[in-house]
């Protein structure tokens, strides 16, 4: 599902973010990407949804070599990948429902399918009663759930989570992890970047450890 083959990413002024990274992630896996702040976790995720280009090496996502992917086909790939962030990236001037609908709107989903998908995702994440609330009226955990709902509403094959619990208390973090595990259980491949080793030990899933841009462990 995701293959990295000797991938190196160098930013301007010879700053090496990732160096010779190789791994393979199979369909339906749950994988943690661990490392300290600035180790290169976010860069690794960005390379998967082609927000960044590798300096060297080959990346294959959903059987597509990203280097050969034409620019016009990038939106199609991104519709198959859901992404969530530590800072949620919600539109503050839109309600919860509008935030989720936005993802369907901009990908031209027919109105009938849209209603059905919205209803399903809101029920699944137990957000129905808050659908008219604005992000600032929600707790951090709820906001992250909205971000997950937005990422999931298009039924992606892969879900990338960049420090999704970084801004949350322990209880909310656990809730989000439970949601991610459940999503993975239903068949979506989940890749979660986190610096929280305690959390990784608790969940017991595969972990890629990045240190100074290098893959230090795959266990």
């Amino acid at each position: 599902m995701i293959t990295f083959d000797n991938v190196t990413k160098v930013y301007q002024k010879d700053w090496v973010a990732l160096q010779d990274i190789s791994f393979f992630i199979d369909k339906g896996e749950f994988v943690f990407v661990n490392g300290t702040t600035g180790a290169g976790k976010s860069t690794l995720l960005k390379l998967i949804y082609k927000d960044e280009e590798p300096t060297k090496g080959t990346i294959k996502v959903l059987d597509q070599n990203l280097r050969l992917l034409k620019k016009k086909n990038l939106p199609k790939l991104r519709r198959k990948i859901g992404v969530i962030f530590q800072d949620f990236k919600l539109l503050q001037d839109r309600t919860l429902e509008e935030n989720i609908a936005f993802a369907l709107d901009v990908t031209d989903t027919p109105a009938r399918d849209m209603r059905k998908q919205m209803l399903e995702i809101l029920t699944y994440l137990r957000l129905s009663h808050k659908k008219f609330s604005f992000p600032y009226q929600l707790s951090g955990g709820e906001q992250q759930k909205v971000a997950i709902a937005r990422a999931l509403v298009r039924d992606p094959y892969i879900l990338l989570a960049d420090e999704p619990t970084g801004n949350l208390d322990e209880k909310s973090s656990q809730e989000i992890i439970d949601v991610l595990l459940d999503i993975n259980y239903k068949g979506t491949t989940v890749l979660m970047a986190t610096h929280n080793l305690k959390l990784i030990k608790k969940v017991k899933k595969r972990m890629l450890r990045i240190e100074d841009g290098k893959l230090a462990a795959d266990q």
Binding site: Y49, K72, P75, K76, L77, R78, R79, V83, K89, L91, F102, A103, V106, T107, D108, R150, R154
Partner: peptide, 17 residues
Amino acid sequence: ATEIDIMKLVGASNSFI
């Protein structure tokens, strides 16, 4: 800018953005 970022992220085409 955030709106544009999200649009790109969820797979909106450039012409749509």
